[in-house]
Amino acid sequence: MDNDSDRIGAEIRRLRKWRGMTLDALAGQAGMSKGYLSKIENGTTNLERRATIKALADALRVSVVDLTGDHFIADRANSDAHAAIPDIRIALMATTLDLPHGQSKRPVEELALETQRLAEARINCQDTVVGRGLPPLLTDLHATATADTNDRRPALQSLVQATNSTAHFLKNLGAVDLAWVAAERGHQAAQLLEDPIYIAAADYARAQALVGLGAYERADAIARNAASLLTLDSAPAIEIYAQNILTAAFCSSLGGDDPADAIEEARELSEKIETTNAFWLNFSRSNVNLWRLSMALEAGDHVKAAEVAALVDPKDIPSKTRKLRFYIDNARALHGLRRNDGDVVQLLHKAEKLGATRARHNVWAREIVTEMLLRARRDAGGRELRSLADRMGLLHAT
């Protein structure tokens, strides 16, 4: 049978009852029909947009992460990546840039190489490698960055990258509150460097963490301010600028603004430079289309999303993590158009092959599989779907 606690709809129902709210009351406050809310709670329709989740979270007086975080994912204890989260938490909470932290046993050059190794591992979905490497790296970088030596500045530079990697790693696993802590630490390090490129890169991580928390207006403001800091006189500055304006456009589009100008500006910038993959953010020509795809999905325009997805050749996507996200977003588009379930499942399989932990814990993938699984009960098919649901922890024997 399905593990009911693994569904966002079940969490919404639990919180609604705890608040003493009727279906009518919650639906009215969230701006949706009672029938639609009932389908969400029962899992007979999947949540497709961040705006819907945000509206429900606001009406329930909880955060978005209370509905989408890792606290109700059944198999997180069996994930090596999730097992690293307590050590990362300690590494962040037990350190500060305001006080010395002893002495690192590794020279700053070795720490810089390790920082880059883990950044590359993250974009290639090697989550176990990243999870094991981040806690000692964060501790050692803090020790070197707070020492009164010539190694302080390069340690701060590596710390901006390391906390950026940490924030994205944690966000992908659903630990968004802690992702914000990591991003804030990177921002603090960047401020000490007084370098606009590092500050804007750290602010990109902050904005992304806030997107995960559902704080879209603040994320929009931070990303816009980050972009304003940059002079577009180098490829890294252009890449970081473009990622920030796309983040701002994504956030403002959730409120109904048209993102077309930002998308076109980013596209033009992508044509002018050869990417240097600054801060491992993977800005590229194909990356702009991935943003277009995400924005179309959040607008509920599955036709446009499918059209954009058809323009993307996965071979042109430079990182596994972005390719994984493309397959999931493509699946969201086809599922929204009620295309063949088998095609949707195959896309989710491709995402799972690239990064099993990340794909199985992705909120959109889980919503799609849950909804399809309930429909599959009406027939004798769905073997591949049930297998995928089982690996996601959504199907359990009694």
Rank of each mutant, 00 (worst) to 15 (best):
Ala10Lys: 11
Arg13Lys: 15
Arg13Ile: 09
Arg16Gly: 00
Gly20Phe: 05
Met21Gln: 07
Ser38Lys: 02
Asn42His: 04
Asn46Gly: 11
Leu47Cys: 00
Arg50Met: 08
Ala57Trp: 00
Ala57Gly: 02
Val62Ala: 05
Val65Ala: 14
Gly69Ala: 11
Asp70Val: 07
Phe72Asp: 08
Arg76Met: 00
His82Asp: 07
Ala84Leu: 05
Ile85Tyr: 01
Pro86Trp: 01
Asp87Ala: 09
Ile90Tyr: 08
Ala91Gln: 12
Asp98Gln: 10
Pro100Gln: 02
Lys105Ile: 05
Glu110Thr: 13
Ala112Ile: 14
Gln116Gly: 10
Leu118Trp: 09
Arg132Asn: 14
Gly133Ala: 07
Leu137Tyr: 02
Asp140Val: 06
Leu141Gln: 10
His142Ala: 15
Ala143Glu: 14
Ala145Met: 03
Ala145Trp: 02
Asp148Ser: 06
Asp148Tyr: 05
Asn150Thr: 11
Val160Glu: 12
Ala162Ile: 09
Ala162Leu: 09
Thr163Asp: 04
Ser165Pro: 00
His168Gly: 10
Leu178Ile: 14
Val181Cys: 14
Gly186Ala: 01
Leu192Ile: 05
Asp195Arg: 06
Ile199Gln: 01
Asp203Gly: 11
Asp203Leu: 10
Asp203Pro: 09
Val211Pro: 11
Gly214Gln: 08
Arg218Val: 09
Ala221Lys: 15
Ala226Tyr: 07
Ser228Glu: 06
Leu229Ile: 00
Leu230Cys: 12
Ser234Met: 10
Ser234Asp: 01
Ala235Asp: 12
Pro236Met: 12
Ile238Trp: 04
Ile238Tyr: 12
Glu239Thr: 06
Thr247Val: 14
Phe250His: 15
Ser253Phe: 13
Leu254Asp: 00
Gly255Gln: 05
Asp261Gly: 07
Asp261Phe: 10
Glu265Pro: 03
Glu274Ile: 10
Asn282Glu: 04
Ser284Leu: 11
Ser286Asp: 12
Val288Tyr: 07
Asn289Leu: 15
Leu290Met: 14
Leu290Pro: 13
Ser294Gly: 14
Glu298Thr: 06
Glu298Ile: 13
Asp301Thr: 12
Lys304Thr: 14
Pro314Met: 09
Leu324Ile: 15
Arg325Leu: 11
Ala333Ser: 15
Ala333Lys: 12
Leu337Met: 13
Arg338Lys: 12
Asp341Arg: 07
Asp341Met: 13
Asp341Tyr: 13
Asp343Met: 14
Lys350Met: 10
Lys353Gln: 14
Arg360Cys: 15
Asn362Met: 13
Asn362His: 15
Val369Ser: 03
Thr370Met: 04
Leu374Trp: 00
Arg375Ser: 04
Arg378Cys: 03
Gly381Ser: 13
Arg383Asp: 03
Glu384Met: 12
Leu385Asn: 06
Ser387Glu: 08
Leu388Gln: 00
Leu388Glu: 00
Met392His: 11
His396Leu: 13
Ala397Gln: 11
Thr398Trp: 06
